[in-house]
Simulated scan of single mutants.
Amino acid sequence: MQTRKGQSIEDESMEIIEREIGPHPYKGHEWKIVRRIIHSTADFDFAGKNGLVFHKDAVNAGLDALKSGKNIIVDVNGIIGLLNKQNLQDFKNQVICDISNPDVVKEATKLNKTRAQTAMRIRASEMNGAVVVIGNAPTALLEVIQMVKENATRPSLIIGVPVGFVCASESKDELQALDIPFITNKGRKGGSPCASAIINALFKIVRGD
Rank of each mutant, 00 (worst) to 15 (best):
Q2Y: 13
R4S: 12
Q7N: 07
S8M: 09
E10A: 15
D11C: 11
D11W: 07
S13A: 11
I16F: 08
I17H: 14
R19G: 08
R19D: 13
P23V: 04
P23K: 02
P25I: 08
Y26E: 12
K27P: 11
H29N: 12
E30A: 08
I33V: 13
I33C: 12
I33L: 04
I37M: 08
I37S: 02
I37T: 01
H39D: 09
D45W: 08
D45H: 03
D45T: 11
D45P: 06
N50E: 13
G51L: 04
V53G: 01
F54L: 14
H55Q: 12
K56I: 04
K56L: 11
A58F: 06
V59L: 00
V59E: 00
G62C: 10
L66G: 13
K67Y: 08
G69A: 12
G69Q: 06
N71E: 09
I73R: 03
I73K: 04
V74R: 02
V76E: 07
N77S: 10
N77F: 06
I79R: 02
I80G: 04
L83I: 12
L83Y: 03
L83R: 10
Q86W: 12
L88E: 05
Q89F: 15
Q89C: 15
D90C: 13
F91S: 11
V95G: 00
V95H: 00
C97M: 02
C97P: 01
N101F: 10
V104F: 03
V105T: 14
V105Y: 09
K106Y: 13
K110E: 13
K110R: 09
N112H: 10
K113P: 01
T114R: 03
R115D: 07
A119R: 06
M120I: 04
R121Q: 10
R123C: 09
R123V: 01
A124V: 03
N128G: 01
N128D: 14
A130K: 00
A130H: 02
V131N: 05
V131T: 00
V132K: 04
V132A: 11
I134G: 00
T139I: 02
T139Y: 04
L141A: 01
L142F: 07
L142P: 06
E143I: 03
E143K: 07
V144S: 10
M147H: 10
K149V: 02
E150M: 15
T153P: 10
P155A: 09
S156F: 05
I159Q: 13
V161R: 05
P162T: 04
V166M: 10
V166L: 14
A168Q: 07
S169E: 14
E170C: 06
A177T: 15
I180C: 12
I183Q: 08
N185M: 00
G187Y: 05
R188H: 08
R188E: 09
K189C: 04
K189E: 03
S196K: 04
L202S: 03
L202R: 05
V206C: 11
R207I: 09
G208H: 02
